[in-house]
Structures are given as C-alpha cells and as structure tokens.
C-alpha cells in the first residue's frame, strides 16, 4: 500500500524526520508510538502533503506511485486520509456542505459525476450513528464549538464518508473518555478490511486493545528505533521510552 524509503523531512528548516523506513501492506494496521517531539505528527502530515513539511530526500511510494510531489487533494483522491490531531474549526461552513464538497471534489478528480444529494444524505445519515453523532452536527459549522470528543468523532465520520484506502489517524484517541474511545475504535474496526490500511499514531495502548494492530513501531528522533507486535505497546506502558533508549544505546 505505502512504502517510505530513507525519508528525510524538514519543518521550517529544522530536521524532524531522518531516514524513516516503513512498509505498510494492504489490510495492515500499523501503530507509531514515540515520545513528544519524536516526529509522529510530521510523518502524518507529510503523508497527507502538508505544504509546511518539506521532503529533503527519500521516497514515499503509494499504490506503486511516487507521491512526494503530489498536492494534498491529489493524495486524497488516491485514497489517503489524515485524521488531524487538532481538527481545525471553519466558522460559517456547515459540516454537511464541507462533506459534500469533499466527496464531489474527489469524484471530480476521478472523472466521476457529482453525487446525487438524496443519495449523499442517505449515506451520511447511515454513518452518523456509527460515530455516535446526531443529525444536528451536519448543520453546525465545521468543528466550531465542538468538544474535543466531537471533533475526533467528526474526523472518523469524514473517514467513513470518504472511504479511503489508507487512513492515518494522528492521536485520534487523545482527550476521549472511555465511551467515546469505544465508539471511535468500533468505527475503525468495522471499517477495516483486507484492502484498507491504517497508520495509527498514539501515546496509549487503550485504543489498541480494541483494534488488534499488526505492528507497533517506536519513533525516536525521527527514526524508527524498534518494531514489534502488540505486546510492545504494553511493554512501553510499563517501562517508558527510556527503556528503548537504553536498549538502543541512544
């Protein structure tokens, strides 16, 4: 699905990602954990093509195509989705309008006709209960006045509407109470299948307990220092990142 080869990324002249290598195959769920400032969000934003993140060298190959130079919208049309750590509020723009504009923009890039409004509403109404939101959310301005949990649920709603092949979830579990966490984890779990892949960035193992990840990677100083199975998350919870540093002689 996606391969990172010796990726080096700078943010405003500062090196954040240094020789990052990772391969995520179809149907796999990979988790990236790491201390604050290790470059987790940089990886997420770089995958989605944020203009502030500049690839200095290395390749990102997605569905056999080099995507280093592609715009965020081109990547979205290819099936890449990023759930933001801090979803932005857009006053004056209704959620439903935003969702429809997104769906139709992607269809346009794919040379497909615009979606029928009734079909679209039917689809969205079917998804809302899966993320525990009611219809009033569609008519509110995007993320404006939303609680932290509502914002995160709104991100998952967008994922389920846009149906990406690769979902990158940047700390989607932060700030959620246990009920909201369960709703979001269920949403992700139900969406997962053999042709869809996930890169999940998190600090905690609690959402992972619901998700059954394939791999856990520990990112330190912009590079994966340790990879393993789900048990790694529990070990980290117990021993902290100093354990990885000691083990790797960092």
């Amino acid at each position: 699905m996606i391969t990172f080869k010796d990726l080096v990324v700078d943010v405003e002249g500062k090196r954040i990602i240094n020789e990052f290598n990772l391969k995520v195959s179809s149907g796999e769920l990979h988790v990236i954990m790491g201390p604050n400032g290790s470059g987790k969000s940089t990886i997420a934003n770089t995958i989605a093509g944020h203009p502030r993140y500049s690839i200095k060298s290395g390749d990102i190959v997605y569905k056999k195509e080099l995507i280093n130079e592609l715009s965020p919208e081109e990547r979205a049309a290819m099936g890449i989705f990023l759930s933001l750590q801090y979803p932005v509020s857009i006053p004056g723009v209704k959620n439903i309008y935003f969702l429809k504009a997104a769906v139709n923009s992607i269809r346009k890039i794919k040379n497909q006709d615009e979606i029928d409004t009734i079909d679209f509403l039917k689809m969205v109404r079917g998804i809302l209960p899966l993320v525990g939101l009611d219809e009033s959310f569609l008519h509110r301005s995007v993320n404006e006045g939303f609680s932290g949990g509502e914002k995160k649920r709104n991100e998952i709603l967008q994922m389920l509407v846009l149906q990406p092949d690769l979902s990158v979830l940047d700390e989607t579990d932060s700030g959620l109470d246990i009920d909201a966490l369960k709703i979001i984890a269920e949403g992700i779990k139900n969406y997962r299948n053999d042709s869809r892949s996930f890169i999940i960035i998190t600090h905690y193992h609690r959402m992972l307990d619901f998700l059954d990840p394939d791999y856990i990677h520990i990112l330190i100083d912009g590079k994966i220092k340790l990879s393993g199975g789900p048990e790694l998350a529990h070990k980290l919870e117990e021993k902290g990142y100093s354990w990885v540093r000691e083990m790797q002689n960092i």
């Binding site: 989605a48 093509g49 944020h50 203009p51 502030r52 715009s71 965020p72 919208e73 990547r75 979205a76 049309a77 989705f81 990023l82 933001l84 979803p87 932005v88 509020s89 857009i90 935003f98 504009a101 997104a102 769906v103 923009s105 992607i106 890039i109 967008q158 846009l162």
Partner: peptide, 15 residues
Amino acid sequence: DKEALFYLRSRGISL
C-alpha cells in the same frame, strides 16, 4: 488560515 486550507485540501478539495 493556512491550516484550514490544508484541512480542506486533505479532504480532496482543490486549493
């Protein structure tokens, strides 16, 4: 807002 622009573009919406 540059972050809002990126947010919309990351959902497939052109610049």
